[in-house]
Design a protein around this nucleic acid. Structure first.
Length: 424
RNA sequence: GGAGAAAUGGCAGAGUGGUCGAAUGCGGCGGUCUUGAAAACCGUUGUGCGGCAACGCACCGGGGGUUCGAAUCCCUCUUUCUCCGCCA
């Protein structure tokens, strides 16, 4: 969430910039400004009364020590009215704070100045594209047909075990998953990322820290008996490692990577988009997370983009990079690049990575700060994350683009990991 | 799951109702001394909120309560440790 001081000091800037996200912030910002002013007045009053109360209490203590019982008891009587006043004022102040907070979390992150205007994904800006689009013969099959032809992914079986969107990978299909995971993790490690293997369920505090709660509650599977949430991405546990943490400057840059399965309810997604591997309830993903000083975060974002790009190049998949427009960028992000690979038999682009700078938006929720050695102040750090990469759509593109008469050709970089050159 | 013990500042560890935001030691930072370093000595060293500031308020695992006053007493939750049971 934005900080209160951002709104206090730059309310018109906040309102103006959020128009790019097609968000009318004025009513909320105005409401917050009013409540904030009132809250501070009340709090100041409550605190000065509390100061008086503390003073009297101290005096009573001294009187008792001196054996002046009568004076002490007289002083006691003065406190009861004060006590009531403080109680009422504190309650008011707390209520106002809660109201402000409830409004604050409704405001999306301010988009970076380079974010293009736009209504939907149709208005995203293509930054660059790489690789020729493969031309497949008319007989080419979409990946769901290839999956059953070569017996590597069983959607029906997953349906039996759990439900739609939970495929079962088998034989070389399972092996390919493991190969991709290891390949991605190795690439990330070479690029300086520390590997983590986090829990797959998180508590409410973690869900709030990265912004899934309270807004996107319906997107996560909720384990109600223990009030845990299945993670929709490794971003949640990994970024929350740094919740309530004050880093020192020597800790930077913080670069983490993690493989996890991801669980998403995807409520409201139907139709052809969900065919095969295109959209699943459980899928594997390798994530990268960085925590940076504010002045370095946009360099870090570019670095992450280049890194994800290098992996796609090694897999020899045709891809394009989009800068998301105001209408398509997420609630919490300031700037996002999407990576899409071309799935040749479906003849469509599939999103395989989304690399974002959240600036201080998550940090403010997480209370993730660092100590500035110059000013000795705590400053909110910037958080960034991206996929490197999401498996299913990579697999879909690999199956479709690499289909040959001899079977599915495995990219050279993966052969050491799979132990075979063809799925046949 | 049963029984018991505990949770205090970066770490260790005092503190059972009143100048305790918290002794002491270690660590960190600054300084004196030194050619330099070590040692020694002196000083300093938590976070958040409000305020231009002086300063004030809050925080001793979380939440609630008793009291004029709570690190200290009560309730509750969580976590850790020891013993027993069960178990991959």
């Amino acid at each position: 969430m934005l900080t209160l001081s951002q709104i206090r000091e730059n309310s018109s800037f906040v309102i103006e910039r959020l128009k790019v996200k097609n968000f009318d912030a004025k009513p909320i910002v105005d409401a917050i400004t009013g409540l904030d002013k009132k809250q501070r007045e009340i709090k100041t009053e409550a605190e000065s009364l509390q100061a008086e109360m503390n003073k009297i209490s101290k005096e009573i203590g001294i009187l008792f020590k001196q054996g002046k019982q009568t004076e002490a008891n007289e002083a006691k009587e003065k406190t009861s009215e004060l006590k009531d006043q403080i109680k009422n004022l504190s309650a008011d102040s707390e209520k106002l704070q809660n109201d402000i907070f409830a409004l604050l979390v409704q405001i999306p992150n301010i988009p970076h100045e380079s974010v293009p205007e736009g209504k939907s994904d149709a208005d995203n800006l293509e930054i660059r594209a790489f690789g020729a689009l493969p031309k497949l013969p008319e007989t080419a099959l979409p990946h769901w047909d290839l999956a059953s032809k070569y017996n590597v992914i069983d959607f029906e079986l997953g349906n039996k075990l759990t439900g739609a969107g939970f495929p079962v990978y088998k034989g070389k299909g399972a092996r390919l998953q493991r190969a991709l995971i290891n390949f991605f993790l190795d690439e990330n490690q070479k690029a300086g990322y520390t590997e983590y293997l986090p829990p797959l369920m998180v508590n409410e505090d973690s869900g709030f820290g990265t912004g899934q709660l309270p807004d996107k509650e319906g997107q996560m599977y909720h384990v109600t008996a223990d009030n845990y949430y299945l993670i929709p991405t490794a971003e949640v546990p990994v970024t929350n490692i740094f919740r309530d943490v004050i880093l020192s400057e020597k800790d930077f840059p913080v670069k983490c990577t993690a493989y996890t399965p991801c669980f998403r309810r995807e409520a409201g997604s139907y139709g052809k988009d969900v065919r095969g591997l295109n959209r699943l309830h459980q899928f594997d993903k390798v994530e990268i997370v960085q925590i940076r000083k504010p002045e370095e975060s946009y360099d870090a974002l570019e670095e992450m983009v280049k890194h994800v790009e290098s992996i796609l190049k090694k897999l020899n998949l045709p891809y394009r990079i989009l800068k998301l427009c105001g209408g398509d960028i997420s609630f919490t992000s300031a700037l996002t690049y999407d990576f899409e690979v071309f799935s040749a038999a479906q003849k469509r682009w599939l999103e395989v990575s989304s690399v974002s700078n959240f600036e201080a938006y998550q940090s403010n929720r997480l209370k993730l700060r660092y100590k500035d050695t110059e000013t000795k102040k705590s400053v909110l750090a910037h958080t960034l994350n991206g996929s490197s990469l999401a498996l299913p759509r990579i697999v879909a593109a690999l199956l479709e683009n690499n289909q040959t008469d001899k079977g599915i050709r495995i990219p050279e970089v993966l052969v050491d990991y799979t132990g075979f050159e063809y799925i046949d």
